[in-house]
Design a protein around this nucleic acid. Sequence first.
DNA 1: ATCAAATGACACGGTCCAGTGGCAATTGAT
DNA 2: ATCAATTGCCACTGGACCGTGTCATTTGAT
Lengths: 180, 180
Amino acid sequence: MRADAARNLEAVLTTGARMLAADPGASIANIAAEAGVDRRTVYRRFASREDLLAAIYECRLAAVERAIDDARLREAPVAVALHRYVENIIAVNRAWPVDLARMLADDDVRARRDASVREVDVFLERATAEGVLRSDLPQGWAGALLPQLMHLVSRQSPETTPARAADLVVETLLRGLGVS
Amino acid sequence: MRADAARNLEAVLTTGARMLAADPGASIANIAAEAGVDRRTVYRRFASREDLLAAIYECRLAAVERAIDDARLREAPVAVALHRYVENIIAVNRAWPVDLARMLADDDVRARRDASVREVDVFLERATAEGVLRSDLPQGWAGALLPQLMHLVSRQSPETTPARAADLVVETLLRGLGVS
DNA sequence: ATCAAATGACACGGTCCAGTGGCAATTGAT
DNA sequence: ATCAATTGCCACTGGACCGTGTCATTTGAT
């Protein structure tokens, strides 16, 4: 692949991710125009609209897997792993803000996504066992809340650094907003 | 209006809300079919697709206003008002799960929505002043987190009663998920 | 400088959907 | 029972978008 082709490919992927996050029904024509590329060029790289979406979700999926890997959820101390995971995912949310929920049709995507979710679930169980999380929480509540918190802070304050944003998320998750 | 017409109208509104929540791009034909009504009937009640959306968002908007009113955010004790507000909004989320974010084009809708948001913001300031919420939180964090919590619990556990769901939301908001 | 790869531009057919018109059939109110 | 309101069904136009073909032009690598 030539250098300009690689540039265009990346532009289409990142611009597509941004536009699809804002409006899941964004057309190929709009994405191509926003990426400064002809509509036909997109169809030369991706066989169909679904293919483009799959490629974008693949980017997010891979980034999430790297984030989990880097956080060492199974080995590192819970407090360290939690903060690192949150910080990494916030960065991923900003780079690839697309919502995976609309892509669960693809079995491959679903399997990898489930694997990541399970990895986090296992970590949350460890956090509970080590006394970081309360043990009387409803099933799946922590696992559902954490992504929402990261997603919220990713959009709410796009200017703050991922590290500081992670501080806020972890603090909110563990201690809430009330006076101690 | 005849009785059957009223039934059809309500079916279109509630079904439309449910389907638009699942997929904001749902077509009139799909909504009508799901509501057990001919597509033409929808167009007899609503001049355009925008009109139907506006009517649905109006339903949610009115329900939110009633919820705020009922919670007596300005007068009732903070703990009481908070729980009651959360409980009411959870019920609204289930009845009208549509996301208002896509309707801010309409000035009237936006004004009413802003008024409701401000009402809650004022309440959160009171909660801070009375020592229920911490005072060192980032600007707008509580106001952004609370709706997300309510939205999350509305979808996460649709079977639990609004009162119990509100327990969980308030507990999470104020004390988080960590061991105290 | 040269050549192959990549792109942009225009065109075309197909599909889905919004919105409208008409008409026969049904249904609720009286 | 009767009548008016309401509905269901068929058809139609216009527009947006998807996906493809073609070809002249540009651009990067050598």
